[in-house]
Computed example of a mutant assay.
Amino acid sequence: MFVRRSVTALAIILASSGLANAQSPTRIEQFKAWGAYSYKAGNSTVCYVLSVPTAKEPASVNHGDIFFVVSQRPGQNISYEPQAMMGYPMKGDSKVKVTIDSKSFVMFVKESSAWVENAAEEPALVAAMKGGTNMTVEATSARGTATNYTYSLSGISAALQKIQNCK
């Protein structure tokens, strides 16, 4: 099930990044709640860590496949870029709120994905993930449904360390 979801996530990542000629992902290793993956895109390698929520609210709606990804793309000079990926389109003018302990981060929305609004805060979000236990992600669907996801951060540090030297 987790492998199927990670392949689905990769397809979404490839579609959103325009890398149609990329190869299928290779799972490097699983670190508790987080998996480390890589794939070739042209002449470069993309590495990422991925997890699925441990809880989804409200329970009465179909959320689709939900992921949180942190990618490393040395060929594009991108290091540890967090991304929330929803299984549905989000409200266009909404924001996604990520909370770890007492720290909150705002993400901007584009269709079914969200990225840190202020790219300078990406390292702080990743550092908070490494030091935290749980992370919540709040989003609003295009239909106006408020959603909330809880992720375990168990294994995130080891997974990020594994992709640190992605080449």
Rank of each mutant, 00 (worst) to 15 (best):
S102M: 07
S51A: 03
A59G: 03
F31M: 11
F108G: 08
S113D: 03
T133H: 10
S112R: 09
N43P: 07
R143I: 00
H63I: 07
F2E: 01
E29M: 10
Q30G: 05
K103L: 14
G35T: 09
K32Y: 13
V106S: 13
K103P: 11
V116M: 08
C47D: 12
A33P: 04
T145K: 09
A127W: 01
N43R: 10
N62L: 14
D65S: 13
M1A: 15
G87C: 02
G144I: 00
S113R: 01
V46I: 14
V137H: 07
E121A: 03
M129R: 04
N77M: 03
F108C: 06
K162W: 11
E122L: 04
M85F: 11
V52Q: 06
S51Q: 04
V49N: 08
V106G: 10
N118V: 03
G131D: 14
T54W: 15
Y80A: 14
S16M: 13
R5G: 05
A41T: 04
L153C: 05
M129P: 00
I13T: 08
A15L: 12
E29T: 11
E138N: 13
K91Q: 13
Q164D: 08
K103T: 15
C47Q: 13
A41N: 07
K91L: 14
K103F: 14
N62F: 14
K32R: 13
G92M: 06
A146W: 10
T136K: 02
K91A: 13
G75V: 13
E122G: 07
S154F: 01
A158V: 13
S141Q: 02
A139D: 10
N165W: 13
A158N: 14
A22F: 14
W115D: 06
Q72S: 11
E138W: 09
Y48D: 06
C47A: 15
S157Y: 03
K103D: 14
G18N: 09
G92Y: 07
L19M: 15
S16D: 15
F67D: 03
A41H: 05
Q23C: 07
K95W: 04
M86C: 07
Q164F: 06
E121Q: 04
V46P: 05
M129D: 03
